[in-house]
């Protein structure tokens, strides 16, 4: 039993890690988003393994269901940025590597050394926050934050609509980043092609 769980854990961990590496290494940005979904799923499976069903379900609902779809939509709305031919590595990637490793080390080293790992779980049931407890807390102790959060979400929704909604003719169209880059590139090119002869035309 214990070994079986161990095996499942190792498989899941390896898959999560592999999927995470794929996210940052594949060339096609849509594929990267799909790998991200895969890694979210395997993290959810890990939560299940730890008997935290509620968090597992929330992970699937929020990260896989909502955030990934949002990411995919964002990619599709900004056409042209499919990522083919874009450099994957920043020029000074090794600085980023050092910083990331240092931050990770700061977090993980004290934990590794200070935590008593080999403690067998005592027979007593340790209560983990279950859905019942979370629900009760929301309805009793944290009723006010719960209500205010819903107002906050409503405001965010209205705000998003106010910003994004275009009234015909009164608002100019928003260019996506890709279109703006494209425009700038074309402008630069035309400037370079005709620096002197058509200066009056291109300067407008």
């Amino acid at each position: 039993m214990n070994i079986l769980i161990m095996v499942i854990f190792v498989v899941l961990a390896a898959f999560t890690l592999a999927a995470g590496v794929m996210v940052v290494t594949v060339k096609n940005i849509i594929h990267a988003a799909l790998w991200l979904i895969a890694s979210f799923f395997s993290v959810a499976a890990m939560y299940l393994l730890m008997e935290a069903e509620f968090i597992a379900i929330v992970q699937v609902l929020v990260y896989v269901g909502a955030i990934s779809i949002l990411v995919l939509f964002a990619i599709m709305l900004t056409r042209h940025v499919t990522g083919e031919g874009v450099r994957q590595l920043y020029k000074r990637w090794w600085i980023a590597l050092i910083v990331a490793a240092a931050l990770f080390g700061v977090l993980i080293v004290p934990t590794v050394f200070n935590y008593e790992w080999a403690v067998q779980p005592s027979g007593a049931q340790i209560s983990i926050a279950s859905t019942v407890e979370i629900g009760t807390a929301f309805m009793r102790e944290y009723l006010l934050p719960f209500e205010v959060a819903s107002v906050l979400l409503l405001v965010a929704l209205i705000g998003a609509i106010v910003i994004a909604f275009e009234e015909r003719s009164t608002r100019r169209r928003v260019l996506t980043l890709a279109e703006e880059v494209e425009q700038r590139r074309q402008r630069n090119e035309s400037l370079r092609l005709a620096p002197t002869t058509h200066a009056s035309e291109t300067s407008e």
């Binding site: 205010v148 107002v151 906050l152 705000g159």
Partner: peptide, 24 residues
């Protein structure tokens, strides 16, 4: 309560982000 203060501040801030960009 710190949680309520945080939510209140975010409610105020998010609204003001939108209002600041209102002359879009």
């Amino acid at each position: 309560d710190l949680i309520v203060l945080f939510l209140g501040l975010e409610l105020l801030s998010i609204t003001l982000y939108v209002l600041a960009g209102f002359a879009y």
